[in-house]
Simulated scan of single mutants.
Amino acid sequence: MTGHNPTTPGWACAGCGAEWPCPTRRRELRAEFHGSPYSLGLYLGQYFVVAAADLRHIPAGWLHNRFVGWIREPQERIPYTAVDILINSYELAKAHDPAADGTCRVCGDPADCWVRLDPAGPGFHIPVP
């Protein structure tokens, strides 16, 4: 039995004090669930849901990466970071700014171009790769 278990409500490792699951527990879990990444995901997903209630101050994406995002092998990981998505979204929104007549410069649609949520405001859809 491992000594690297979570302590709640802070979700620190009882064995080493790092954020749980700590690197040691991750190695142990990989060995325990070898060949069953989906089962490991379901197992850690349960912890993720409980931790989300305790750690409301931490953005959900960070918690996801902490609890289940590390399960994929590096070559399987999505090559985009949040910064990449924001930069690409900003560039996309700039390209789809309305022309003087109110139509989109790229797709020619009227003010309700698919990229902009609110033609009068700065909002836009964030494309997810």
Rank of each mutant, 00 (worst) to 15 (best):
L86Q: 12
K94M: 12
H125C: 07
A99F: 00
L86S: 11
A82E: 14
V115L: 06
I126Y: 02
N65T: 04
A99T: 12
G69H: 05
Y80I: 03
P119D: 06
D54Q: 03
L55P: 04
G121K: 11
V83A: 13
I87M: 07
P79G: 12
D101A: 05
T103E: 00
P79A: 10
G102T: 10
I87Y: 05
H57K: 06
R56Y: 00
A111G: 09
A95S: 14
K94H: 06
W114H: 11
P119T: 00
N65F: 00
R116G: 02
A99R: 15
S89A: 15
P122E: 14
V106W: 04
A60L: 15
L117H: 09
H96S: 05
Y80R: 08
A93D: 01
R56F: 02
L86Y: 08
I85E: 07
P59I: 05
G61H: 01
L86H: 08
C107E: 05
R116M: 03
R56A: 12
W70I: 03
G121V: 05
G123V: 01
D109T: 13
I78F: 02
L92N: 08
D84W: 06
L92M: 09
I71L: 06
V83F: 10
F67W: 07
T81D: 02
N65L: 09
L92W: 02
E76M: 07
G108M: 08
Y80L: 10
D118F: 04
A95I: 00
R72N: 08
L117R: 13
A120S: 13
P127D: 11
I78D: 15
G123E: 14
C104Y: 06
D109L: 09
R105V: 08
T103A: 06
H96D: 01
P122A: 15
N65V: 00
T81C: 06
I85A: 09
E76H: 11
A111C: 06
P122R: 14
D109Y: 04
F124Q: 12
F124Y: 15
Y90R: 13
I58T: 06
S89Y: 03
E76D: 14
